[in-house]
Amino acid sequence: MNESMNQSASLDDLIAIMARLRDPDGGCPWDLRQTFRTILPFTLEEAYEVAEAIEQDDMSALREELGDLLLQVVFHARMAEEQGSFVLQQVIQSICDKMIRRHPHVFGTANLPNPEAVHANWEREKALERSAKHDGKTVGLMAGVAHALPALVRAEKLQRRAARVGFDWDAIDGVFDKVIEELDECRETLAEPADPGARVHEIGDLLFSCVNLARHMGVDAEQALRTANRRFERRFGQIEAALHARGLEPSLAMRDEMERLWSLAKTEEC
């Protein structure tokens, strides 16, 4: 591949590269060994790395990570083509058709004057598409919410679908009360004899209720937890750095000092 190609590479070039990597005659042994299932973890990882670049407002990283994610699409499409299922062009055609169909106010004559109307139409189209996949039969409202989604994301999607038909709290106070109720039930599972199954059940209910609370507060629960994870990681890193500067290590014996340094790290962020 010459320098001029590097400066003007196209999707066709990427398709050709993947075809060469998957060529049984001289291709890459690692790429040839892969299947949809073995590549799946990489696909998910690349999607999260795109999210991380966005969260960090790093456009250079975003450019690179979008390329890595695009490679995953081309990789899956190539494997599908090899087994005669579909080709990349059909993938592109499918999403083009879907976007045109779901935007009749842009590509047609429908009158959808505000974002709420657009969203309602989008959901109607999705419902019709789900029904079409089942030969026109009525399908449950929760059908199509992928089980592979992160649990917090899936919980919010399930709740939003239920809310569309009125199965939701009328006011946020009820959600706060539900969270407290579930927290109390978690505490009850600590009583003897311990039932690990009950604890899993109650913790699940508590987390589900917390997602509901986040939704009612207009907060993306998955994003909020990702942010909290980064904040914890950053603050604990400050604790470690402060201890290492004094020739110390994090340990149970340093618990009080770690608590002090944690409070200091929180104060410095304010």
Rank of each mutant, 00 (worst) to 15 (best):
S10E: 04
I17P: 00
I17D: 11
M18S: 10
Q34N: 06
T35F: 12
E45K: 02
Y48T: 09
S60C: 03
G67K: 04
D68F: 03
L69Q: 12
F75E: 09
E81W: 06
F86Y: 15
Q90P: 02
I92A: 12
L112I: 03
P115D: 02
P115G: 01
E116D: 15
E116P: 00
E116G: 08
A117F: 03
H119K: 10
W122G: 05
L128G: 11
E129M: 05
E129R: 07
E129V: 01
A132G: 07
G136N: 01
T138E: 10
V139G: 08
A146D: 15
L149Q: 07
A151P: 00
R154F: 06
A155P: 00
R160E: 15
R161W: 10
R161K: 14
A162E: 14
D168E: 15
A171E: 14
D177H: 05
K178N: 13
E182V: 05
G197A: 15
R199N: 06
H201P: 00
I203M: 12
I203T: 13
N212Y: 03
G218T: 08
G218L: 03
V219P: 03
Q223R: 13
R226Y: 07
E240C: 15
E240I: 14
H244A: 11
R246D: 05
R246A: 03
L248Q: 14
E249R: 09
P250G: 02
A253L: 08
D256C: 01
E259A: 07
A265K: 05
E269A: 11
